[in-house]
Design a protein around this nucleic acid. Structure first.
Length: 270
DNA sequence: CAGCAGGGGGCGG
DNA sequence: CGCCCCCTGCTGT
């Protein structure tokens, strides 16, 4: 199994990703100001067609979206509104849907949980990842999505410096680890035990479990700029196991310059 | 691998 | 809550 590390690194931030197309996408949304999709009715513009279409819906006074429930006359201008209406009105589900994986506290909105995770549990995301993302579990609660792609440098750095200063009370506790382990997706069966290419030790890495060889989780305790202890988690995801793709030819625009740099594989894999 | 459809999350009202 | 920005999974090529 090739314990994957992403081959393409954004030259402008720490983000790495497995495919050129992912990187292009990242560039478009995070590092380009181009907004090729413009609204005819107002000065709105955006970076992809889908968003323009959604925006156009907000212009039309027409129903746009209508509730499917029988005899329900509710209508809205966004799909999102319809869905939340349906849950609330026709399914009576108005309870909090975001749950902290560490202490089980519930929140009605994702950003409330984000604040909670940062303040109460000192969670932090690595640079290049601007926010937490949440994923729906089988019990219907949204919990922190822990699978992230991390850069080679971060990985190596983590392997090199096992947690120091873990003497403080803020060192990892079991609940946070459990929360993380719970998140790992059952991987393909068969393959086991990743080998870091030439990098040896797994150091402080926690193998999710032997049944779940699909991810290795690094959790480090560190001191931030403000001198506070904080927990940072990193997850290495396993690539499907194909060789690195060949670089593509450039194709024009601002993206082109970026691409030239960006598409150089960050490391040569076996 | 690219394009599209849909959804998650932020943020201001 | 409404609108916007971005991400991702799916599906066709």
């Amino acid at each position: 199994m090739r314990n994957h590390v992403n081959h393409y690194k954004c030259p402008l931030c720490d983000m790495t990703c497995p495919l050129p197309s992912s990187l292009r996408n990242h560039m478009r949304f995070r590092h380009s100001e181009d907004r090729p999709f413009k609204c005819d009715c107002c000065d709105y513009s955006c970076k992809n067609l889908i968003d323009l279409q959604k925006h156009l819906d907000t212009h039309s006074e027409e129903p746009a979206y209508r509730c499917d429930f029988e005899n329900c006359t509710f209508s809205a201008r966004s799909l999102c509104s319809i869905k939340s209406h349906y849950r609330k009105v026709h399914e009576g589900d108005s309870g909090p849907r975001y749950k902290c994986h560490v202490c089980d506290k519930c929140f009605t909105r994702g950003n409330n949980l984000t604040v909670h995770l940062r303040k109460k549990h000192q969670f932090k995301w690595p640079s290049g990842h601007p926010r937490f993302r949440y994923k729906e579990h089988e019990d219907g609660y949204m919990r922190l999505q822990l699978v992230r792609y991390e850069s080679v440098e971060l990985t190596q750095q983590l392997l090199r410096q096992p947690q120091e200063g873990s003497g403080l009370g803020t060192s990892l506790n079991e609940s946070s680890l459990q929360g993380i382990i719970l998140e790992t997706v059952p991987g393909e069966p068969g393959r086991k035990e990743e080998e870091e290419e030439g990098k040896g030790s797994e150091g402080t890495a926690l193998s999710a479990s032997q049944d779940n060889p699909s991810s290795v989780i690094h959790v480090v305790n560190q001191t931030n700029a403000q001198g506070q202890q904080e927990i940072v988690y990193y997850v290495l995801s396993e690539a499907p196991g194909e060789p690195p793709p060949a670089p593509e030819p450039p194709s024009g625009g601002i993206m082109e310059k970026l691409q030239g740099i960006a598409e150089e594989p960050e490391i040569q894999m076996v």
